[in-house]
């Protein structure tokens, strides 16, 4: 972007942020783990030693062995293979939910911040959405749409909208007062042009930070919905649903519920570390 207009420039601030990010060890751990997870999701069929949904009753309820590194479940399915395939589901769920939250939330936030007439109705709607604890809102939406992984994504995505709307709105409110916006308007730029070219790029860093942290929340929320029986259904190798299936065997075979739960833990931790690192790198003022 052109520096003369006073808005964010790709050079200076960006490379500073990048330098801060790669010096942050925790963020780098999160980043590399995320990369590993993405690769695992992409090449799941090649990595997983067995078919994730193939029932093999002769080998059911085994603890970790050389043949089944993470053991088998009550249907003799290889837990490692299910977890590897589950990476695809969890990352997809996270990306789609956050995509919905980001897309809808940012649009509403831009409109609310930029057009005074729309501010009150949008803010009021967000206040109503925020009056539901997020998981409860997701549950309400699943109640309406019916259980299932796709509806769970929509539900979690809608639950994420208010945070993005609020963030964008408050960024817009401060950005619109800047001289470069005034200047663009004086030069005859239309509102949509001002929003897309000047306002939106300047909301970029807080949105990236919130987006990354929301991935963690979204994956966790979707896993919870599946655990409750409101998201993915068996035999889909979704981690929350796998933990729910292991619930009945918790007394003697705690590994069935534990390994998928640990997988959720690792993914959520990665995105939390990466999100924290991005926040410190892109907006050092927020650092404690």
């Amino acid at each position: 972007m052109d520096r003369r207009d006073g808005s964010v420039s790709a050079g200076g601030r960006g490379s500073d942020a990048w330098r801060r990010l790669i010096r942050d060890r925790a963020a780098m751990v999160g980043g590399w783990c995320t990369l590993a997870l993405v690769l695992m999701a992409l090449f799941a069929p090649a990595i997983a030693p067995y078919d994730p949904i193939k029932v093999n009753m002769r080998e059911r309820l085994q603890g970790p062995t050389a043949k089944h590194l993470l053991g088998t479940d009550q249907f003799g399915r290889d837990i490692l293979s299910r977890i590897v395939h589950g990476t695809r589901i969890s990352l997809t769920v996270g990306l789609i939910s956050v995509g919905i939250g980001l897309g809808v939330g940012t649009t509403l936030g831009l409109l609310a911040g930029f057009y005074r007439r729309l501010d009150y109705p949008i803010t009021a709607l967000m206040d109503v959405l925020l009056s539901f604890p997020q998981i409860l809102l997701a549950i309400a939406i699943v109640a309406a749409l019916g259980p299932g992984i796709f509806n769970a994504m929509i539900a979690v995505g809608i639950g994420a909208v208010p945070a993005f709307t609020r963030l964008t709105r408050s960024s817009v409110l401060s950005i619109r007062e800047h001289d470069y916006v005034e200047a663009a308007r004086a030069l005859g730029a239309s509102n949509p042009r001002i929003i897309l070219r000047y306002v939106l790029p300047n909301c970029f860093s807080p949105l990236v930070i919130l987006g990354t942290l929301s991935l963690a929340t979204a994956i966790l929320a979707a896993a919870i919905l599946s655990f409750l029986g409101l998201g993915a259904r068996p035999p889909m190798p979704e981690w929350g649903a796998m933990a729910a299936e292991g619930r009945g065997f918790i007394a003697q075979f705690p590994h069935i519920a534990t390994f998928p739960s640990l997988a959720i833990f690792v993914v959520v931790l990665c995105f939390n570390l990466l999100g924290d690192g991005l926040r410190d790198a892109l907006d050092p003022r927020l650092k404690e």
Partner: peptide, 22 residues
């Protein structure tokens, strides 16, 4: 605390049952 923030609550519950009840 950072690790705890990323733990799914159902696992904590299931482990509590496994340890303290069973």
């Amino acid at each position: 605390a950072l690790l705890g923030l990323s733990l799914p609550i159902f696992w904590i519950g299931l482990m509590a049952i496994w340890l303290f009840a069973f």
